[in-house]
Design a protein around this nucleic acid. Sequence first.
RNA 1: GCUGGAGUGGCGGAAUUGGUAUACGCGCUGGUCUCAAAAACCAGUGUCCUUACGGGCGCGUGGGUUCGACUCCCACCUCCAGCACCA
Length: 824
Amino acid sequence: MAYTTHEIQRIESKWQAFWQKQKTFQAEADPSKKKFYCLEMFPYPSGRIHMGHVRNYTIADVVARFKMMQGYNVLHPIGYDAFGQPAENAAIKNSTDPGKWTYRCIEQMHADFIKMGFSYDWDREIATCDEQYYKWNQWIFIQMFKKGLAYKKASPVNWCPSCETTLANEEVIENKCWRCKNEVEQKDLEQWYLKITEYSEQLLQDLGTLKNWPLRVCAMQENWIGKSYGVEMYFKEVKTGETIPIFTTRPDTIFGATYVVLAPEHPLVERLVDGTSRETDVKVFIEKTKNLSKSLRMSGDQRKEGVFTGAYAVNPVNGEEVPIWIADYVLMEYGTGAIMAVPTHDQRDFLFAREHSLPMRIVIQDPQRPDLTVEKMTEAYVGPGKLVHSQRFDGLENEGAKHKIAEWMEGQKTGTITVHWRLRDWLISRQRYWGTPIPMIYCKTCGTVPVPDQDLPVVLPKNIQITGEGGSPLAQCKDFVEARCPKCGASARRETDTMATFFDSSWYYLRYCDAHNHDKIFDEDKARYWMPVDQYIGGIEHAILHLLYSRFFTKFLRDLGLLKIDEPFDRLLTQGMVLKDGEVMSKSRGNIVDPGSVIERYGADTLRLFILFAAPPEDQLEWNDGAIDGAWKFLSRIYNAAQKRHRPVKGDFDARNFDQDDQGLYRELHAAIRKVTSDFSEDLKFNTAIAQIMILMNRLEKFDPCGDEGKQALLNRAIETVILLLAPIVPHLCEELWQTMGFSPSVMKAKWPCFDEQALLQRTALVVVQVNGKVRAKVELPADAAEEVLRSLVLANEKIAGYVSGKEIRKFIVVPNRLISIVV
RNA sequence: GCUGGAGUGGCGGAAUUGGUAUACGCGCUGGUCUCAAAAACCAGUGUCCUUACGGGCGCGUGGGUUCGACUCCCACCUCCAGCACCA
């Protein structure tokens, strides 16, 4: 038999059936066993799996299987992030039901996962669109509502006109909808929010505890949360006496503030200009900025436009009256929507001041240019220096002056030391059908009332006509909208918005711990046993969205008393993308390689091996048709070795009788165990682990047992080791060969091999000899010999003598068993 | 602009953390087998000089530290990713 397509298919389906039947990967919480929770980001069920899934889930599968062989009690579940817009769009297009479409996709994906040989505990498979799942979305929402963490407010929101729904800040990428890439508009709506900002400080602080997360993910979250320390200062408008709070991180420049700028949307603007000669100009400008889309306003040359309001404000530190302007470069969403402008030390203010001939004053002296004047300035000076023109603070270094001025202003009650956050509350209302109904009822007398627990879930009605037009589909479903008030029983109206699907995925890893609990979101003891997730694997695109929301939910559920942990994911790996011809695989580019056709021809094992060998998991991976052939050849060689060269023997080998050949193979064998074990457990560098197994194979194939029983026993051991080390990567073939070699299945229950430190010790070492930094010879020398011995041996070497003789040896450096460096 | 990361053969990528640069694989060249081809196996494969022995040069660029630098330090270039009129 050869490792042909036919044979591959026989082997793979045989073992897939075996695992299914034996429930090899079923997990049971058992506090007496060491647990390992291995998780991949669950897929959106869109049909057949693609190479991105294959890569993500193969990496996870190797970790899960490896930990299992190491004796851990492994939880490795899968499910489907099944609510969401693509199902709705597909339903509109094919005039079918989003539910039917989704469940069909789930079926296909499930089948594909089986074909890949993934080690899932199928008894825990979940789909977020199941009533028994989204019931708990609603339950969490109500708990949040009760704690004041879910609330409704009217506010300008991000609106995607093409998806006809609102979007969270995190879903807006460069002012475009993350899903359909259409330009996002602003709209005033009353919507549900989750108060994630309540956890800003913790979400930021605890990033420091995530030692096993990629730095860049933590950095991205830190930027997103965006904590900045500063002072809120109170300027007073001269005529009305109204207070204008402004936020600044640079209180050290307050004496250089020569004007104030409000955002065009600032509520004070109207009051300042109404009935004045500036009214028309200001209103024309406001209209103009409104009509400019946000991305246009922020793009291009960033020229700053604005108009004078005619009003003045008093600088609280020196009583100076400064003009109040409005300008497009001040945003209502950040800070207080008003700034003090210090053109000498802020480049944006500088450009604006030049454009509109506004006054400037230097208050920080550039130590390199003591003669610098406002007239000579070509750009704002943003470096450090001593304060000038700042009254009592003159002469202070500006860094230190920040605190001094802030404290002084607080004492004067002209300012407050504050912290500003970039993070906003999470807008979760969506005007779409295929999502979790928000479990709220509006009663004329009782107001907004949550649906009582016993009435959960609020079931998403089926057989809804979805046209994609005319607003929220649920609002048009009379039976759904009409309800009774849970408090007073009067007729009431149901909330018709559904939840953003990121709500669903913010806690699914907890549900896996106890997937079929009908009475509770999950059993606390089970969650305590399994959580946190030990290894989480998924795409970098979730660096902020899903990973931030999940951290928030974990902290909330902890505060409810359901969890004891602060963070859900201990180790995080973000896998790279799969490319073809240097570009991301995508339908529109037409460069998709379908995993199904690769499996059909080469088998899942070959695909798994290739995808792990081609690049380290975090890097991008370039698809290569030739290299996949190479992966298959390698498996073919293993197949042949196990089938033809593994023979039963009576005794075992004895290391004391080893000749040089035996010694070499034995050493390579243990080098492979060591390398593979560390690569699998630490950096998850599967490419180098596989390379090491290949080295062992190369050695093993050259090894000739010469009919000797001891040698044959050693060869057997080497082949068995290859099978064990490769089993997490290439599970079907290894199960088959494990059985062929006479062991009882499953190889997953076999013990992971241990390496023998002694085996790696060598009697002699090939030592490189350098003279004046250049490699001049390679000499076989006794291992761990004393310097004196080495010295005489090396100097006796003919080649070295040629370089050294007659010269004074100034240094003789020994790196044990590796290198000798001579300086003459 | 800020943040994080990367630059090594024809290609994907290694390098025990300062110690033989290019492991492993792909590709390519030559050979064995064959009527022939494929497969398989064997050998070679950074670059320049040399018939050869051998030697020079080579990890984005330039400098530095060191007996020794892909690795550490300084300055710069290029590319990728994320954020961004954030006050």
